[in-house]
Design a protein around this nucleic acid. Structure first.
Length: 463
RNA sequence: GGCGGCAUAGCCAAGUGGUAAGGCAGAGGUCUGCAAAACCUCCAUCCUCCGGUUCAAAUCCGGAUGCCGCCUCCA
C-alpha cells in the first residue's frame, strides 16, 4: 500500500483497522472524484475485512464550511435542513453503489465540542494562537510540518501570488482552526459561541474531528489528489494533537474529463449500464493515475462489465445442469481458478493495483466461455468457477446478483409452461408464435434469451 | 512565475534495463429465425521529440514540447 510520505506502508490486518475517507463536499454530493475515492476505500475495507481485520470505515463530511452554507442559502434552506437532505441523498447513493452497509457517514456538526477541545489543547500547548477572533495553527511550532513529501517546503514560494498584507496570520502557511463568523453567519445562526467569539471550525478541523468522532482512531486515510497539500499536513497536525497517527495515507487522482461527457453520477451510471458497471469503471485504472471519462472509455467498461456478468450467468446455469457425473475438476479448470484467485490477491496486496487484475479476469472469462460453449462442462467445474468469481466479487462488488438467470426448475409453473411452449414453437419454426410467447413472458416479468444450451430466463428488474 | 506528476496503437491501459500484457473499436471466419451473446484468426519492428549512459532502454540521465495537480477562494 502506498504511503503519501513516499514509500510503502504495510498495514497489519491482524487487529482492528479504521479507514477514513474524505467525502464529497456537501455542495456537490455527486462529485464523481469523491465517489471514486469512496469505492476505492470500500474495496480496501472489504479486502482487509476478508483478510481477517476488524475494519471500520467512515466518510468525513464537512457540513459547517462556507461551501455548505452558501449551498444551503442558495437553496433557501436552513443549514440543518440542507445538510439532512444531502446526507440522506449520499447514504442512498452509497447503498446503490454497494458500499458496505456499516460505512459511517459522519458530519462534522455532530462533534463541535470535540473540535473546540482540540483547539483549546493546541492553544494550551502554544501550537496555535488567536488573532482578531480567529484561531490559527502555527506551523513553525510543528517540526514535522512539511515532511510528508507532498511539497518541498523550502521551495514553496510563499506569498508569491498573495498580498501578505491581507493576511492577519503570522505566517502565510499557518492555517485556520476556527474562523470568525461573518455577519450573515451570525444573522442565520450558523455560528458557535466560544471564548474567542462567534466562530466556525475550519475545514481541516471539521474533517479531522469527524474522523476521530466516528472512528476514535484513523489508521488509513483515503484522500484525493487535490487534498495533498496542505490538507493532509494539516490533518496530520490536528490528529497528532489528539495522539492519532495514521499508518497510511492514500491519495487517488481525479477523472480525466472530456468535452461533452456529462459527469454527474446518474449520467455515468447510465453510460456504464448500472451500479456494478460504474464500480468497475471507477476501479478500472490505477488509482494513482487519472481515470479517463471519455465516451469510448465508459462504453468499453460497460461492455466489459456485461461480459463478466454474462459469464457468471452462464456458470450459474451450468453448475446445476446435466453433465455432473463425477466430481473430477479438469486440470485446466483448476489452473484457471487458481490463477484468478492468485491474481486478485496479488493485485490487492500490491497497492490495490486492480488494474493488473482485469486482464486476468478477462482471460478467465474467455476460458470459461470457451468451456461453456463447448457444452460438455462438468457441473462441478462450473460450480467451482462460479464460487471463485463470487469470492472475487465479495471484494469488488461489481456483479449484479439480482440479474442472474433463473434455472428452469425454479421458475413458476406457469412461466415454465410458456418457456416450454415457446421452445416447441421455435422447434416447429413457428416464429410468430415464439415472438408472441416472448412478449407474454415479458408481461409476466421474464426475459428470454436463446443459447445453444437452451433458453435462458431472467427475471426482469422489478421496477 | 515556483513545485510535483504524467506522456505507450483510433481509444483505454499494463509494462522501471533484456527485446511491447489485456480490453474497446475495426477486419475476416464459425455459430445464428429474430434478439442477445459467444468462440477462432488478424490488428504497435515500436513506446512525444532531441541528445547521453550501456553489450542491451519504452524503462536510467540531461534537455525540449504537451497535458494534469498544487502554490489563490472554500481552508
Amino acid at each position: 500500500m502506498n504511503l503519501a510520505t513516499g514509500g510503502k506502508a504495510v498495514v497489519d490486518a491482524a487487529g482492528p483497522l479504521n479507514i477514513y475517507t474524505i467525502g464529497p463536499s456537501l455542495d456537490e454530493p455527486d462529485d464523481p472524484d469523491a465517489w471514486r475515492r469512496l469505492v476505492l476505500s470500500d474495496v480496501l475495507a472489504r479486502h482487509l475485512a476478508r483478510s481477517g481485520a476488524q475494519v471500520k470505515v467512515a466518510v468525513g463530511l464537512a457540513d459547517l464550511d462556507d461551501r455548505t452554507l452558501s449551498a444551503a442559502r442558495a437553496a433557501n434552506l436552513s443549514r440543518a435542513d440542507y445538510v439532512a437532505g444531502v446526507l440522506a441523498r449520499i447514504k442512498a447513493r452509497a447503498q446503490s453503489l454497494r458500499l458496505l452497509p456499516e460505512t459511517i457517514f459522519e458530519p462534522a456538526s455532530a462533534s463541535v465540542p470535540q473540535a473546540l477541545d482540540i483547539c483549546r489543547k493546541l492553544l494550551g500547548k502554544g501550537q496555535a494562537y488567536e488573532k482578531l477572533r480567529s484561531v490559527y495553527f502555527d506551523v513553525r511550532r510543528d517540526k514535522r510540518y512539511g515532511n510528508m513529501h507532498l511539497m518541498d517546503m523550502d521551495k514553496l514560494s510563499v506569498g508569491k501570488t498573495v498580498d501578505l498584507d491581507d493576511y492577519v496570520k503570522d505566517n502565510p502557511l499557518d492555517f485556520t482552526l476556527l474562523k470568525r463568523a461573518s455577519l450573515q453567519d451570525l444573522k442565520l445562526g450558523d455560528v458557535i459561541e466560544t471564548e474567542w467569539g462567534n466562530v466556525r471550525p475550519s475545514w481541516f478541523v471539521q474533517i479531522a474531528v469527524a474522523g476521530l468522532s466516528a472512528l476514535g482512531r484513523v489508521d488509513v486515510l483515503v484522500a484525493g489528489e487535490d487534498h495533498q497539500f496542505p490538507h493532509l499536513e494539516n490533518l496530520r497536525v490536528v490528529w497528532s494533537a489528539a495522539g492519532v497517527e495514521p499508518k497510511a495515507w492514500l491519495a487517488d487522482r481525479k477523472l480525466a474529463r472530456e468535452e461533452g461527457v456529462a459527469l454527474d453520477l446518474d449520467a455515468l451510471i447510465a453510460q456504464t449500464g448500472n451500479a456494478g458497471g460504474l464500480r468497475l469503471w471507477l476501479l478500472s485504472a490505477a488509482y494513482r493515475k487519472p481515470l479517463s471519462a471519455s465516451q469510448q472509455s465508459l462504453s468499453m467498461w460497460a461492455r466489459n462489465w456485461h461480459k463478466v456478468q454474462e459469464t457468471a450467468c452462464g456458470l450459474r446455469l451450468a453448475q446445476g445442469a446435466g453433465g455432473n457425473k463425477g466430481k473430477d475438476i479438469p486440470e485446466d479448470v483448476a489452473q484457471a481458478v487458481f490463477d484468478l484467485k492468485a491474481g486478485l490477491a496479488q493485485a490487492l496486496e500490491d497497492d490495490l493495483s486492480l488494474h493488473r487484475y482485469w486482464p486476468r479476469l478477462f482471460t478467465f472469462v474467455k476460458l470459461v466461455n470457451g468451456w461453456l460453449s463447448a457444452g460438455n462442462f462438468p457441473g462441478a467445474a462450473a460450480a467451482l468457477c462460479l464460487r471463485q468469481l463470487e469470492a472475487a466479487d465479495a471484494v469488488l462488488g461489481i456483479l449484479d446478483l439480482s440479474q442472474m438467470p433463473v434455472p428452469g426448475g425454479s421458475l413458476p409453473d406457469a412461466v415454465r409452461a410458456l418457456v416450454d411452449e415457446r421452445e416447441a414453437a421455435r422447434k416447429a419454426k413457428d416464429f410468430a408464435a415464439s415472438d408472441a410467447l416472448r412478449a407474454r413472458l415479458a408481461a409476466s416479468g421474464f426475459r428470454v434469451e436463446d443459447t445453444a444450451q437452451g433458453p435462458r430466463v431472467y427475471a426482469l428488474a422489478s421496477v
